[in-house]
Amino acid sequence: METSLYLPVKRHLESLGFTVKGEVGGCDLVALSGDDPPIVVIGELKLSFNLELILQGVERAGACDEVWLAARLSMNGKGRESDARYRNLCRRLGFGMLGVTHQGSVEVLVAPSAVSPRRNPKKRSRLVIEHQRRKGDPVAGGSTRTPIMTAYRQQALVCAAAMATGPCRVRDLRVEAPDAGKILLHNVYGWFDRIERGIYALTDAGRTALKRWPQGPSEVVPIAE
Rank of each mutant, 00 (worst) to 15 (best):
R119A: 15
K211C: 03
S33Y: 05
E23T: 01
A209W: 03
E59C: 08
L69H: 05
K122N: 12
V40Y: 05
L73E: 15
E176V: 00
Y189D: 10
G34I: 10
Y86E: 07
Q103P: 03
G62F: 11
G26P: 02
E14Y: 07
R119P: 09
G99M: 03
D172C: 11
C159S: 04
C168H: 15
Y152K: 14
L51I: 12
E219A: 13
F49D: 08
I195C: 06
E66M: 11
I129C: 08
A209N: 03
E130R: 07
A201E: 07
Q154H: 09
R194A: 12
E107P: 05
V30K: 06
W68Q: 00
L202T: 13
E14P: 06
C159T: 00
C64T: 04
A63V: 03
V221G: 10
E14A: 07
L157T: 01
R72I: 00
P121Y: 07
A164T: 10
A151C: 09
P147Y: 01
A161C: 04
T144P: 01
L127P: 11
H131E: 09
E44Y: 06
R126N: 14
K123H: 10
F95Q: 12
N120G: 09
L98A: 02
A71L: 11
K21R: 15
I195L: 10
S15F: 03
P8R: 09
T150A: 01
L93C: 13
I223E: 13
E2H: 13
T150H: 01
M149P: 01
A201W: 01
F49R: 07
M97Y: 02
S116L: 14
R197Q: 06
G17S: 04
Y86D: 03
V175M: 06
V40G: 13
V188D: 14
T101H: 08
T3I: 00
T3K: 06
Q155F: 01
N76R: 13
C159R: 02
T101Y: 03
